[in-house]
Design a protein around this nucleic acid. Structure first.
Length: 186
DNA sequence: GTAAAGATCCAG
DNA sequence: TGGATCTTTACA
């Protein structure tokens, strides 16, 4: 039986790239009407605030991005392409508008659908717009720390789907667990 | 108001 | 390679 407790808010209140690394191997936990769904985070992308032209927060503070500009440890969820949701966790101090996008999970418990890609991840975990702005310090929706005794290798690559963002498109801000079969793309 | 593009995914 | 599907943002 897994012992699953939320990481403290101070976990998110750190450099975004550091948080992205530490999220790999951690567990996303969502209690859906008593069914506790658990997935291991195997792929993420870092978005570095207003200066990052690939980040939504580069548009400034809007109704949509207000969660990004808020305090760390909250979920930023949005609808993409009219049919899929993407989930981020807000990092660093309030106002920095940094976040980490969760791109892929390895199913651990009560996860039957595919989790390979940010849209599928949200569908499989039962995450939608009403999770936007939700505090990850809650009992039914949170991230639990990874097993420090399960070492792994991290690969850094350019982010997916951000070719429009100039020099930011090439930066190696996508991280995944080397060799994991649930990575969304090579 | 209107239009265009988007941190996706799948079929053909 | 294009279709599904719709919100957000830019601009007139």
């Amino acid at each position: 039986m897994l012992c699953l407790n939320p990481v403290p808010r101070s976990f998110y209140d750190r450099d975004t790239i550091t948080v992205a690394h530490d999220l790999l191997g951690a567990f996303l936990v969502h209690d859906v009407a008593g069914e506790v769904r658990v997935g291991k985070i195997v792929e993420v992308e870092a978005y570095l605030g207003e200066t990052d032209l690939a980040a939504h927060s580069s548009k400034g503070l809007t109704p949509r991005t207000r969660i990004l500009f808020g305090p760390p440890g909250f979920a930023y969820v949005y609808l993409i392409y009219g049919m899929y949701f993407c989930m981020n966790v807000v990092t660093e101090r309030e106002g920095s508008a940094c976040a980490v996008l969760l791109r892929a999970l390895e199913p651990v418990q009560n996860v039957s659908e595919r989790t390979r890609g940010p849209g599928l991840l949200c569908r499989a975990m039962g995450i939608d717009l009403h999770h936007n702005g939700q505090d990850l310090e809650s009992r039914d929706f949170f991230i639990a720390p990874r097993d420090d005794y399960a070492p792994h290798q991290v690969v850094a690559r350019p982010r997916i789907g951000v070719a429009y963002s100039g020099i930011w498109a090439a930066k190696p801000l996508r991280f995944y667990l080397k060799g994991n079969p649930y990575i969304s793309k090579k």
